[in-house]
Structures are given as C-alpha cells and as structure tokens.
Amino acid sequence: MSGLSYAFGDRRVLQDVGFCVQPGGVSVLLGLNGAGKSTLFALITRLYSARAGRIAVLGHDIERAPLAALARLGVVFQQPTLDLDLTVEQNLHYHAALHGMARRQARHRTEEELGRIGLLDRSRDRVRTLSGGQRRRVELARALIHRPSVLLLDEPTVGLDVESRAFLIGHVRSLCSTHALAVLWATHLIDEASEGTRVIVLHQGRVLSDAPAEPGSLAATFGQLTRRAA
C-alpha cells in the first residue's frame, strides 16, 4: 500500500500510510488505541473506500479489481464475527460458501483446519458453547479455509488468557513458515512483537517507524517515538 490517507469528515485518521507485507513473515502493526489500525484494516478489506492512495493484494488493486484482491485475503476482525447460534462447522461452511467453494471441498477443509487448531471434536457444537479462546481459534480457522495468501489479524488476542494467546501467536508463526503466508498483525501489545519481527509503528494515523524489533528496546523505542510525535 502507498500514499494512503483517510478522514471521517474533518477528522483525519490516516495520513500518507505506505508499507509492504512480505510472504513468509509476520509484520506487526503496533499502535495505541485510536492510532488508525482498524480503519486501515477496513480500507484493506474494502469496507471503506480509500480516497487517496493505493492498496494492492498480490498486484490486484483493491479498488479496480476488488474481487481478485479479496479472494486472496483472510481476515480475523477485532470484533467477534461468528454466528453464535450456528455450530462451528456451519460457520465454516458458510464462510466457504461466501468464497464459492464446493460442499465437499468445504467439508474437507473444515476438518483440516479444525484438526490443525485442535477443535475437530467440537465441530458439531454451537459456537455459543465455546470459550473465548476457542472462538478466536475458530475465527482463525475460518479465515484460512479458502487458503488466502495474505492474513490480516486485527488485535486477535484481546481478551484472551495467556495460554490462548500463546497458542494463537505460535500457530500463526508456524503457518507463516510452513505456508509462506504474509501476515499483518495489528496490536497495541508490545510483547506480541518478538525479537527480529518486523514492527510498523502507527501513531495518530502516521507510520512512525518500520524496522525489525530489537532485543529489549522495543518498549522504549515505541515510547520515544509516540512521545516525539505527540
């Protein structure tokens, strides 16, 4: 993405944002609440239309070729988006249908993805009966069912306990290395960026820095950057 700006009325939310997410790695988008992370995600997923700048997914421009671009995106939104009254597999089948997948393929992929996150035995249970951490895992499985090339995660660990958080982070990292997935992980939690992970600091709608996390110094650097910008 390049030159991306967005405003709600007079309130400018994003200003000249641009960066590139590479396959096989996690890029952490770090920012405080209100930094513009969710707006950026809404632009990438075409929930909003960018008024200035360009977003492309594997070369497909989100405005000019939205269908091709969205087909290659998997998204876990900040808000829970599962249908609580449907079962786990019904939720995944619905998502597969939204990507035009055949029933047999959807069943196969559902089993595969649920097996990967250790919830195959809960496939016939209603989502309402799952814990918060399990629901997040199902959302991740759902985002991967159509085998996207780019995975977007918007504050996926908010409200999760330590174990669920660790599982999610570990699972996404392993997906990155085994399937060469390009991951953009938005968070306000500094400890989610491990050493060497690329960190893009977004503050008040601007990218302040874009560099690999250095051992032990990320919190201090983040503090310095955001104070200076304020």
């Binding site: 269908l67 671009a69 969205l70 087909a71 939104f77 988006t81 599962l82 939204l98 990507h99």
Partner: peptide, 10 residues
Amino acid sequence: GSMRTLMVSP
C-alpha cells in the same frame, strides 16, 4: 461484526 464477514466475500 458478522456483516463484515459477508462484505469481505470476494
């Protein structure tokens, strides 16, 4: 939020 799931379908 489930409207988002529908709207990001390709």
